[in-house]
């Protein structure tokens, strides 16, 4: 039995028991308790009937430089980050039309790699389209966050992987070289950060 099924069973039993009490018990206080149980059980059952999404902490994609064989693999790590730790998909779509934020389909061909890097690390440097004022009215305007800072806080390696993904999915050649991926803790990784 899965957890959801177990909880559903419990919820149903609570509602059933409450119903039975309402039918057969006369004591007022007990009846009110039964009524409350039915309400609470019902609420739980409703909540169990909708999609069950837990929010997991982002998995840490390993950058075992030696084990990344080619750029494809780098791009696929980037894809995981795009949908996971990077939270990009919270705002961006890929080829399904513009919602809240710019659609990123083919972005790898439209933008140079450096521009993309800048878009992620200095998002306010060049606001090409003010998403706060155009398009269908939005109650809560969106802004591109700093990807290299907390709370998203991608490392340089991770950003490079995402860029590789964006280029790859746009059918472009990936211009991120494997040699650029830094071995964690190696000298120079701090000083070169953000330079590119």
């Amino acid at each position: 039995m899965t957890e959801v099924q177990l909880l559903q069973t419990i919820g149903l039993s609570v509602v059933g028991l409450g119903g039975a009490i309402l039918l057969f018990v006369k004591a007022r206080f007990v009846r009110v308790v039964a009524f409350v149980s039915i309400v609470l059980g019902g609420f739980t059952l409703v909540a169990l009937s909708i999609p069950q999404m837990a929010s997991l902490p982002p998995g840490v994609e390993k950058f075992d430089v030696a084990s990344i064989k080619d750029k494809k693999e780098l791009a696929s790590i980037g894809q995981k980050i795009f949908f996971g730790k990077g939270q990009c998909a919270l705002c961006h779509t890929i080829g399904t039309g513009e919602g809240r934020c710019p659609d990123l389909k083919g972005i790898g061909s439209k933008l140079t790699r450096d521009f993309m890097y800048e878009s992620l690390t200095q998002p306010q440097a060049y606001v090409y389209k003010d998403y706060e004022h155009v398009g269908p009215a939005k109650f809560f305007p969106a802004k591109m966050p700093y990807i290299n800072k907390k709370p998203i806080g991608l490392s340089k390696n991770e950003i490079l992987a995402v860029i590789a993904f964006l280029q790859n999915m746009s059918g472009e050649e990936v211009t991120v070289e494997l040699s650029e991926i830094e071995v964690p803790g190696s000298a120079g990784s701090a000083s070169r950060r953000g330079v590119l």
């Binding site: 957890e3 959801v4 909880l7 419990i10 919820g11 609470l40 059980g41 609420f43 739980t44 409703v46 909540a47 169990l48 009937s49 909708i50 069950q52 999404m53 837990a54 929010s55 997991l56 902490p57 907390k150 709370p151 806080g153």
Partner: peptide, 23 residues
């Protein structure tokens, strides 16, 4: 954005489970 939850309970449970707790 300042202090990360690194415990085994860093995840947020799904609504059904949470609703059972709320009830």
């Amino acid at each position: 954005g300042v202090m990360q939850d690194t415990s085994p309970y860093a995840y947020s449970p799904a609504l059904g489970y949470a609703a059972a707790f709320m009830s």
